[in-house]
Each structure stands twice: as structure tokens, then as C-alpha cells.
Design a protein around this nucleic acid. Structure first.
Length: 264
DNA sequence: CCTATAGCCTGACGGC
DNA sequence: TGCCGTCAGGCTATAG
């Protein structure tokens, strides 16, 4: 599930549950989720340490470790976190579980194993090496820069919004919502959009992501005049005009839009 | 340099 | 009930 708003939700979740507790034990149920670190190294870095703070960049969560460096958490399409009592059974598809001295545990869950757990000594360098653009909600990202980053590009606007090297954090679902609210069709070629329209997409992007992030990505808590709650509920009618929402594929990803409201 | 596409990986779901 | 194809809120490597 995780796009920027969801990861923001996970960040608050870790803030509320897992900071400043000493790690007793790290259990790795499936090593394949560790792509750039060995199980021994992960354990060595975490055991006896505490988590001190969380930061997010795009869809990545960086949890700082008191001994130095940070735990890198990426959720892929099916990742999530679950905090609970250490005596309880692990949730299905737990891949890594961190047990604390207070007999609680934090489990990283991933059904399809498309995510990753790793370590980074320097998250800023990690972000750079992975070619991530500025976070979509970063205060230093402004309208002008956004317009500049999109100008001269070919391809479709939805693909550009989902391109993490332009702006980090937007995925398949929120790109649909942003374009719905900006009234731009997802298959519109970027180079056929004028500056004003792109600037408006920027404003809408900020509003959509901030509101959704506040709600931790919980689709049920989103305003009912947004597209997502309708699509999620299997409702094929447009919250704006009541017309039929079109489902199609753009860049291989399922996409929803209203042909009547999204005219640009 | 840029964009589009296939592949990774696994389980849930619907149709037969 | 069981099998099978399709699908999925992401990313990377590769081809064009």
C-alpha cells in the first residue's frame, strides 16, 4: 500500500510505539527482505541499541539508531508494520521482528517481498545514491522548481508524477487522486501542459498529500468528494459529476479517471 | 540523457 | 472443491 501518506502514518506509528526502548532481539524470518545487509550485521547494529527518531523521504522511512546510522525501511507494495506484545503470535508474513526490553515487539510485514529492510550510515547519501528527487512535501520544494523539473519532459503526466527521481513519494493511487482534483487526464503528455496547469498540479499535490498524510493514508478517512474513497469502495461513479469512472492502464498500472471532469 | 517495458515475488480472487 | 489465469498502492535493469 505504501505511498507518502502511508509511510507518514507508519512513521507516526513507530514514533508512538518504539522509540527509546532497548532492543533485545532481532528475528529475521525471511532473509530475502535484506537486500544490502547481512542478518548478522543487522542484528549487531540493532541489539542493545535504541531507536531515537524517525525521518521520511518519499516512500522511505529512516529510523535512527542510538549506536549510529539508521534502519532503512521500504514497504514495496504490500509492506506494513505491526506493534504488539512479544508473547503474541507473529502476524502473517512477518519478515523481521524487533523485540524490546519491555516485552513488546515491532514486526515488519511484507507479503510479496517487494520491499526492503536495510541499514544506512547516512540517509542523505542513501537518498542520493537511489536517485530520489525532493520529497513531495518538502518545504524547500516550490512551484517554480516543480515546473522546471517537468518542463521539457516527454511521456505522460501520471508516469512523471510517479517518477521518484522527479519528486519522491507519489505512487499509483495518489497520482490518480492528484490528477482527478487537478482535472487533468492521467494520459496527458507532459509537454502539452502549460505552466499554469503544472503549477496547479503542484498546489493540488501539496494539498492532497498533506491531508492524506495527516490521516496516515487511511482511505476511509479521506473526504468523500475525493476519487479514492469511491474507487476503494467499488463505486464507479464520479464524486464530482456522477458520471462513470474509467478504469484503464497507464504505464502498466491500473488508473482511474473521470472523462467528464478531467478534460485537460 | 530520457522514456517505456519486463521482471521480480507471492497470495487473493473469480471463473470454469 | 480444485485448478488456473489475472491482478496487485513499487522498484530496478534493460531496451529503444
Amino acid at each position: 500500500m505504501p505511498e507518502l501518506p502511508d509511510v507518514q502514518g507508519f512513521m507516526k506509528y513507530v514514533d508512538a510505539t518504539s522509540l527509546h526502548q532497548t532492543v533485545n532481539r532481532v528475528t529475521i524470518t525471511d532473509e530475502r527482505i535484506l537486500k544490502a545487509v547481512t542478518p548478522d550485521k543487522l542484528r549487531a547494529h540493532l541489539e542493545g541499541a535504541q531507536f531515537t527518531r524517525n525521518d521520511r523521504h518519499g516512500k522511505y522511512l529512516f529510523t535512527s539508531i542510538s549506536k549510529g546510522g539508521a534502519l532503512v525501511v521500504h514497504f514495496g507494495m504490500t509492506g506494513s508494520l505491526a506493534y504488539g506484545d512479544a508473547s503474541e503470535d507473529l502476524p502473517d508474513y512477518s519478515r523481521v521482528t524487533i523485540e524490546f526490553e519491555n516485552h513488546k515487539r515491532l514486526s515488519y510485514i511484507s507479503r510479496r517481498m517487494l520491499g526492503e529492510i536495510g541499514l544506512s550510515e547516512d540517509p542523505a547519501r542513501f537518498i542520493e545514491r537511489h536517485g530520489l528527487g525532493p520529497d513531495a512535501l518538502a518545504p524547500e520544494l516550490n512551484r517554480e522548481e516543480f515546473v522546471k523539473a517537468l518542463t521539457g519532459r516527454r511521456g505522460r503526466i501520471k508516469s512523471a508524477l510517479m517518477n521518484q527521481s522527479i519528486v519522491a513519494g507519489i505512487g499509483n493511487v495518489y497520482s490518480d487522486e492528484i490528477l482527478f482534483q487537478a482535472r487533468v487526464r492521467p494520459d496527458k503528455e507532459v509537454n502539452r501542459l502549460d505552466e499554469e496547469t503544472i503549477a496547479n498540479i503542484f498546489d493540488v499535490m501539496r494539498r492532497v498529500l498533506s491531508i492524506a498524510a495527516e490521516r496516515g493514508g487511511d482511505l476511509e478517512r479521506l473526504p468523500s468528494d475525493w476519487l479514492l474513497p469511491h474507487v476503494e469502495a467499488g463505486d464507479e461513479s464520479c464524486p464530482g459529476c456522477g458520471g462513470k469512472i474509467i478504469k484503464t492502464k497507464i504505464g502498466g498500472r491500473p488508473s482511474h479517471y473521470c472523462p467528464d471532469c478531467q478534460t485537460e
